[in-house]
Design a protein around this nucleic acid. Sequence first.
DNA 1: TGCATTTATGTGCATTAACGTATATATATG
DNA 2: CATATATATACGTTAATGCACATAAATGCA
Lengths: 117, 117
Amino acid sequence: MGTEKTQSRTQIAEKLVEAVDSKFFKTLSEPVRVQILKYLMLNGRADIQTIAENMPQDRSVVSRHLNLMQEAGILVCQKENRHMFYDVNGQPFIEKLVDITEKIKKCMNECCPDCCK
Amino acid sequence: MGTEKTQSRTQIAEKLVEAVDSKFFKTLSEPVRVQILKYLMLNGRADIQTIAENMPQDRSVVSRHLNLMQEAGILVCQKENRHMFYDVNGQPFIEKLVDITEKIKKCMNECCPDCCK
DNA sequence: TGCATTTATGTGCATTAACGTATATATATG
DNA sequence: CATATATATACGTTAATGCACATAAATGCA
């Protein structure tokens, strides 16, 4: 068993740790934010006022959630006049999820094939 | 535009909300727990004592984290004598991630194709 | 221009939840 | 009955959430 093999396994595992972005997961761990995601998927781009009207929380609270979701790469925003419009950050969001899934898959297969029996 | 189509979109979005299990995401949003996951992937099945020796936290804290990870379906545990062994819940863990990714993909494509341009 | 209105964000506060440390308890072993 | 392993509990600290209000920025109208 060469050092290369061990190095390789460690590197794969460390890439997994990098991929599992804690901010990203924390953002999706809050039910209110998932509801916001659902709303935007069903209704498309909307400003904060409109989104907040469809949530039980106050507009200021919704604003904070939207900002967090944007920082996590789940949403994008554009300011127009005095309105701030948010929308789902479609492709990058999907790609991030796929990337995480693939990295964990790879780590499973190459680092601990035993645990998948 | 029939009611069926709207219903269908709503149903797809609701399945997405169900899939984005907040407990699962919250569990993976804690860096310590990702480190535990990494350790188990690289070193395989281990008891709490051994895992805790490789983490900065106290054994009681590690025990709590391991319990949460098991409840979230990420790990499995088996009691042997006075030792509690934990291991990665390989296939189900992967399947859960793939399921979430696929549901979000589907929702993107069928609910808001515009947001993926 | 001046001022009220609308939209969004910032701030202070209380409440709740999570984490870590330390200690105590439970369970099994020798 | 002492020891080893794991879990439960109490406590302090920190962070997140929601509410209410204050501020900022843009708009509309007199």
